[in-house]
Write a protein that binds this DNA or RNA. Structure first.
Lengths: 228, 228
DNA sequence: GCGAACCTTAAGGCAGGGTAAAGCCGGCCT
DNA sequence: AGGCCGGCTTTACCCTGCCTTAAGGTTCGC
């Protein structure tokens, strides 16, 4: 069913968990130390990690943070500690769930399934050229065409249009543009954006009063949509 | 931070949760019945549902299954029952997490963040437009349609309508509107709200005397509901 | 019937956005 | 090196649309 990595130093618990999970159809790899587990996650990424806090060689919390730093693998934490502060700390460090001992094998497995179900849907992105109306953008070739005719864009203009095409149909704020296209922190210096938008409009053959693609939404931002 | 839907029949718990979550920056809509919540999820999809099992009108379990059948929205279940069988049943019915009362506001919020983190990474493109009756609002595109026809709204008008739709079926006070839509402290300067509501009504094709969507509740506030 | 809460319209002011033009910087060519 | 040039930013000014405020009418509850 799924490839699980169990990190647990207590041999008794480890054995019980391995049995419970294997019975239910999972493939379980187990290790007793956090360092070994970290190494393993990097080399043979499992579908999910079951991590016991309170390991001998490394604070479980540290292990969790390091694991999260190098991988997005789902992590379910097992522990004996039940205080609220600890739960919050662990979840905020990147754990997907937190189960307090003692627990039954059934619960653990249900929680694993719940986390896997949620993590399962992964997203894809296509590097192909994209189109909005008669506007075509090829990110690789750094080229844009409108109605089949090539339009000449500077680097910023292209990046700007690229970002707008990626978010076609949604309103994009100047703040978004400054952070993602200009890659500078927002400091109210958004006039530059206005100017570039103005230039883009000119090259797209439209005006602010009669827009075809670039519609400004006053007080919010700008929106790229295909003309009707 | 996130738009949460809280389904809880106990007024005391509901109040406490609303306070705790609002303080931490979330926008909370609450309802006491599962049927109302189900309807709301269909029309105005929230980012996450906090569902109490043990509701009066419908088995919480049934509510959970129906909600999951029609939507992939993340669901965190709250309950007093702590037995293993129940936990497994609920998680397998599609819940993302299961928290047993009593719990602190901090823990609940950490768990919400954990689930949102995981769901957000997988399904970034889920913000469907929301509907109340023949009124449709798309927050991303900042666009509203009524009976399929586009209606032109200013920024404040849109934000106002957006807030009302998010709290469809509930009475909203002017104080709420001033703090959440206008983002100013309440100082009795609520005349502006009246004016904007009036403009909204005009654009929605209704009058205060013959309302279809915007019903004023004298002495309390205003309520948006779908016409019969 | 009185007061308060609410509705509607109109007028003024301001902020957000558009664009031209002037500075600024770095690359490129001779 | 010097000068030219394309591109990015900044400045300045205009304009438009929207928000607020004010004023007067209307409805509701008591």
């Amino acid at each position: 069913m799924a490839q699980l990595l169990l990190v647990e130093d207590d041999a008794a618990i480890r054995g019980a968990l391995i049995r419970a999970l294997t019975e239910r159809g999972h493939a379980v790899t187990s290790m007793a130390s956090a360092m070994a587990a970290l190494q393993h996650v990097l080399n043979v990424p499992p579908d999910l990690v079951l991590l016991d806090l309170g390991l001998p060689d490394l604070s479980g919390y540290e292990a969790l943070r390091m694991m999260r730093a190098v991988s997005k693998v789902p992590i379910v934490v097992i522990t004996a500690r039940d205080d609220e502060t600890e739960i919050i700390r662990v979840l905020d460090a990147g754990a997907d769930d937190y189960v307090v001992k003692p627990f039954g094998g059934g619960q653990i497995e249900a929680r694993i399934r719940a986390v896997l179900r949620r993590a399962g849907a992964a997203e894809r992105r296509s590097p192909a050229p994209m189109m909005v109306g008669a506007l075509c953008l090829d990110a690789e070739a750094h080229e844009a065409t409108l109605d089949g005719a090539r339009i000449d864009l500077s680097r910023r203009e292209f990046d700007l249009l690229h970002y707008l095409v990626l978010h076609a149909g949604q309103v994009v704020t100047k703040r978004d543009l400054l952070t993602h296209v200009w890659q500078m922190p927002y400091g109210g210096a958004d006039k530059t954006v206005d100017v570039h938008v103005s230039w883009l409009r000119r090259k797209l053959g439209e005006t602010a009063q009669q827009p075809r693609y670039l519609h400004t939404v006053r007080g919010v931002g700008i929106k790229l949509i295909a003309p009707p």
